[in-house]
Amino acid sequence: MNWDLFPQFLATGLLTGGIYALIALGLVLIYKSSRVFNFAQGHVLMLGAFVAWWFTENLGWSIWMAFLAAIGVAVLVGLAVERLALRPLIGQPILATVMMTLALAQVLQGAVILVFGAYQRSLPTMFPLQPLILGDVRLKLNLVLAFAVALIGFAVFVFFFRFTRAGLAMRAAAEDHQLAQSVGLSVPRIFGLAWAIASVVAMVGGVLLANISGVETNLSVIALKAFPAVLFGGLESIPGAIIGGLTVGVIESLVGGLPQDPAIRSLHLGDIAPYVFMLLVLMARPEGLFGLKRIERI
């Protein structure tokens, strides 16, 4: 075991976990309001990276302008997806919504390849690339920033849900669609809002991530690691998304990094640690840390 590298792996894990948490936030937001689990969240993230790249490359905008433009595009994409793809499925069984988001992921994948091409691109750097050095631990500045954005996002959402009218409306809709509608809230509009916010979160994550690993269609894969995070934290819980994301990041980093024996290292245990963890969570406590336990009646 590489115990002397423990702080480094812990820090790396926490920072990667910040990205997972950012994606998990978007997933929770959509699930909380509309009971749809968005398998396409990672593809929205990838789209964000490509959109930002397109604005810098073809219009010659600065990276920060492109960043804002990507947020604008995210709002439109979120609203369009909710209106065109998910709204016709309200009241349909869960398989329909699962399949719809999986189909959406395919459409986004195909569209991005057709429009932007399947090449690896790179974004102008947003931040200096030299690592942040704290004692023995070296940290990538972009990851630190993504982490900070995840925490800020968390704070903003807590504020939003607790103190704003729209946030209260979303909480009401999450509780019960019919009750919310009967007190005069427009549930479809709330769904649209949730999708728009979630897309913005994903695209912000996409731009930050693309700064580290380049702009490519494989960016969407990272969202697959956010699924265990969401399930661990609880599908309906925003603090749960943060805690889940960080936990999964740390588990992945420690399991992958700590063992020193080459025979064990060659197994790449870090790749599946999040999913084994997810299976354990599903068996031991399916609703996650802060999720709601649903009671059913016939």
Binding site: A85, P88, L89, Q92, A96, M99, M100, L102, A103, L104, A105, Q106, V107, L108, Q109, G110, A111, V112, I113, L114, V115, F116, G117, A118, Y119
Partner: peptide
Amino acid sequence: EVQAGLLAGLGPLLFGLVLMLFLV
């Protein structure tokens, strides 16, 4: 202008669209 990504992109795009249309 889109030749390079045509095969890789068209497959998933059409599949996803067909699936969406059937679901709706």
